[in-house]
Design a protein around this nucleic acid. Structure first.
Length: 806
DNA sequence: CCTAGGATCAAATAACGCTAGGCGT
DNA sequence: TTATTTGATCCTAGG
């Protein structure tokens, strides 16, 4: 089938496709067209990755818009949203507007009403429905990318419920679902009332095999000799082998540490294959990586990249990740070792994929658990770049012949597991049931069950009555906690219940937060007394005028308290939100248990709630890991350097950012809840939220609110005597310029953002801006001495690293 | 005969990912 | 539960 044979497309689109080099549709694509995707028919395309799924979706959306409709593309990851948007934007020439909506962007989504194609994550879509986004009822086509994710215990139910709601709102809605090959695609298709298009076809051949001894055995019966010298590592040998044919390798491992260790070893292999030109480009890239963040992780990554290897995991800052991804795609970086982040994320194909670790530690499982077939298939599917490689190779590693045979059985010959709905789990139902009631999809127990009866879960369950039981338990939970009222069989959301639903909080998080804030109100006086007692007993450390000192103070384990005690304290609030189920737990590492037990008793008056007994093992452990998270946030909001934090808590720069973002969100929600219930803590909550947002101590809140001023610049301005936004408008320009390290352009931008009438720096003499030469040198030691407070790196980055969320 | 460096072994250590609100100067 | 790292001990080659 050729593009011009596809019915229903807007005029000019087939020509555009041809000019992109698309002469002929791939067989599965043609099959989807024959099934009517461009004529409003629902289709489930269950085909391998990189075989043109997105294209099927594009055809469907274009034709739907052509008929006067509006399309929604649901992505599984935020990172994919912008990638898809960029892809769809080439249709703007045909009068089609594209909009993206993910967590960070707009909230009400009103402006999306005018867009023809909207890209959003499933959570965002869910949230938009909860907030009654008006345009949702205008949708005529919805695309669900990676629908097999309904199988995911954590995020699957959201997708499942969201698709259900969309179909309920728009009865005739066309559903185009894209899925990896799974065991029960027919079942999923039936649930969606869609025609199934299933195929193993790939645009480029994929050879799967296992390396054992001195050779890889492939599934097509061929072998390839890859000798492993003694002392050598298998992975290194395989990477070197690919390199000989000028191909790049992607290595999947099961932990961050392993990813870093593997990259360190691989760099010696890749270094040998670099040209002079590549070396200098890589050196540049390494510098860019160093500039992203001043941490050990960043440094190690830069060292590897300089030699042509890299690692990739969620502990990296987002900028790190995309730098690595881009460089790998451009074939500058020859080998990447990665945790599964890379298997599901943005497209990073590679000539050879090596799945080194196929088991991963799982506490609940009680040992090393083999990965799902689907997951391994996703990894292997990254092999082979269409149009560039003759074929792709995916290799598993075995150290004995028994393992080799097992790997063939388990992963190469095996079909992926069937997709199974995880909706009937209590945590999932808790939030979705409340939302269903709050946004008016159901008002009675029967109504709720009726709605749930149309989900995939209902078509799959072999355990009748389970859904009813869990539903009843959850309704009762919501009732007891005051989120719904149950009367005469009618279930209605209370005002708080409505707010919780709209805030997108897990009701259990909301309950925890409300309990904590109410507890604080009841125990305020007693705890304030304790706090003041402690503060005077520890005796305020001498002058706190000097910044270095002040920052030491907070990070010090001795514990220091602000004298003008606000209550609840920031730490108390950080701990409160850290112990909700919406905040991911930080691991307690060896030694942490003691450290934080001690800390817990020391800081007890600040914590909002009763400390669980040490004998309640699980609860106490959770309490402590929440405290660890809270201390991390407190350090961040106390201007402790990024590298100190990563070192102290054993996390990567990306983790800090993740925690900070979540805390910001939850504190925002807490602020709303406190306001709604008229609790006195609103002000304290707002301040704590602002402090994590900017990563500053309270005296800098005003300054850090100015655009272009992050935690570091704010501190330097403050040191220079400019303490507020209005000081910025009045101050001597040369002082501002000096505080900003003599960067004229930055200074002008800052002044303008602060609302100064004459931001120009043209009339300021360089000599006036007495820039200490030493500050341009990178501080080598961790503790920088000297009075200039020169604790950070160079100008553009100091803002870019983490201070710059806005 | 001593030392540096490598090899070997036992003990210690740590083990994936990530979505979400809404204010505004 | 397991793979990797770390640290201690032992061995060997070379001075």
């Amino acid at each position: 089938m050729r593009p011009e044979d596809v019915p229903g497309l807007p005029e000019g689109v087939p020509e555009q496709l041809q000019s992109e080099g698309i002469e002929e549709l791939y067989p599965p694509q043609a099959e989807a067209v024959e099934a009517g995707v461009t004529e409003g028919e629902s289709v489930l395309a269950s085909i391998p990755t990189a075989s043109g799924k997105t294209f099927v979706a594009e055809l469907a959306m274009l034709s739907s818009v052509q008929r006067g409709g509006k399309a929604l593309y649901i992505v599984p990851l935020r990172a994919l949203a912008s990638e898809k948007k960029a892809e769809f934007e080439r249709w703007e020439a045909f009068g089609i507007d594209v909009g993206v909506s993910t967590g960070n962007y707009d909230s009400d989504g009103e402006w999306l009403a005018s867009r023809d194609i909207i890209v959003a994550t499933s959570e965002k879509v869910d949230s938009l429905i909860r907030n009654n986004a008006p345009w949702v009822s205008d949708l005529t086509c919805v695309v669900s990318d990676e629908v097999h994710l309904v199988n995911d215990a954590h995020r699957g139910p959201t997708l499942e419920v969201t698709l259900g709601k969309l179909r309920k709102i728009n009865p005739g809605l066309q559903v185009v679902a894209l899925s990896a090959t799974v065991g029960n695609a027919d079942e999923v298709a039936e649930w969606l009332d869609a025609t199934l298009v299933e195929s193993d076809w790939r645009p480029i051949d994929l050879k799967m095999g296992v390396h054992y001894g001195n050779a890889i055995s492939f599934d097509d019966g061929t072998q390839r000799e890859v000798p492993v010298g003694k002392g050598d590592r298998k992975t290194a040998a395989l990477v070197a082998d690919t390199l000989e044919e000028d191909g790049s390798s992607l290595v999947f491992v099961n932990s961050r540490r392993n990813a870093e260790a593997a990259a360190k070893r691989l760099k010696d292999v890749t270094a040998r294959a670099l040209t002079e030109g590549e070396k200098s480009e890589l050196a540049e890239l390494a510098q860019e990586i160093r500039d992203v963040s001043d941490t050990e992780t960043s440094d190690t990554l830069a060292n590897c990249v300089a030699k042509g290897a890299a690692f990739h995991h969620a502990g990296l800052a987002a900028e790190h990740r995309s730098l690595v991804e881009d460089a790998f795609r451009d074939r500058l970086v020859k080998a990447v070792s990665a945790t599964p982040t890379l298997a599901a994320g943005v497209n990073t194909p590679s000539r050879r994929v090596i799945v080194r670790d196929w088991r991963r530690y799982d506490g609940e499982f009680g040992g090393m658990k083999p990965l799902d077939v689907l997951e391994v298939h996703q990894m292997m599917g990254r092999a082979g770049r269409p149009g560039l490689d003759p074929y792709g190779e995916a290799v598993l590693l075995a150290k004995d012949s028994e393992t080799r045979d097992e790997l063939f059985e388990r992963y190469i010959w095996a079909d992926a597991e069937p997709v199974r709905s995880k909706l009937a789990a209590e945590p999932a139902l808790r939030t979705h049931l409340l939302a269903t009631v709050a946004s008016g999809f159901a008002h009675t127990r029967e109504g709720v069950l009726d709605f749930l009866g149309q989900t995939l879960y209902a078509t799959q369950t072999d355990e009748p009555g389970r859904l009813e039981r869990v539903t009843d338990a959850v309704v009762q939970y919501l009732d007891v906690n005051g989120f719904v009222d149950v009367e005469d069989g009618q279930i209605t959301a209370t005002p708080v219940g409505h707010t919780v639903s709209r805030l997108y909080l897990d009701p259990m998080s909301a309950a925890e937060i409300l309990d904590g804030l109410e507890w604080a109100a009841d125990n305020r006086d007693e705890n304030l007394r304790k706090l003041d007692g402690v503060a005077s007993a520890t005796s305020e450390p001498q002058q706190t005028g000097e910044f270095q000192r002040a920052s030491e103070m907070v990070s010090n384990d001795e514990g220091t308290y602000e004298s003008e005690t606000t209550y609840p304290t920031a730490l108390g609030l950080f701990h409160l939100v850290s112990r909700t189920p919406d905040m991911y737990q930080l691991y307690l590492k060896s030694g942490d248990r003691e450290t934080f037990t001690e800390e817990c008793y020391e800081r007890e008056p600040e914590l909002l709630g009763k400390v669980p007994s040490e004998y309640e093992d699980v609860r106490f452990e959770e309490w402590l890991s929440a405290l660890k998270t809270a201390r991390l946030l407190e350090d961040w909001a106390g201007e402790v350097d990024e590298d100190r934090i990563t070192e102290r808590y054993g996390v990567g720069p990306g983790d800090i950012r993740g925690k900070v973002e979540t805390a910001q969100w939850l504190l925002g929600a807490a602020e709303r809840l406190a306001g709604e219930l008229d609790l006195s803590s609103v002000v304290a909550v707002r301040e704590a939220k602002k402090r994590v947002e900017y990563g500053v101590r309270d005296e800098l809140l005003d300054l850090a609110g100015v655009r272009g001023v992050g935690r570091k610049r704010a501190r330097r301005l403050f040191e220079a005597g400019i303490e507020t936004r209005s000081d910025l408008r009045e101050a001597d320009k040369s002082v501002v310029l000096a505080a900003l390290r003599g960067r004229r352009k930055t200074a002008e931008n800052v002044l303008e953002a602060a609302g100064r009438r004459d931001p120009s720096m043209d009339d300021v003499d360089e000599a006036d801006a007495d820039v200490p030469a030493a500050t341009f040198e990178r501080a080598s030691g961790r503790q920088s001495h000297g009075g200039d407070g020169g604790d950070d790196g160079d100008d553009p980055q100091e803002q870019a690293s983490l201070g710059d969320f806005g």
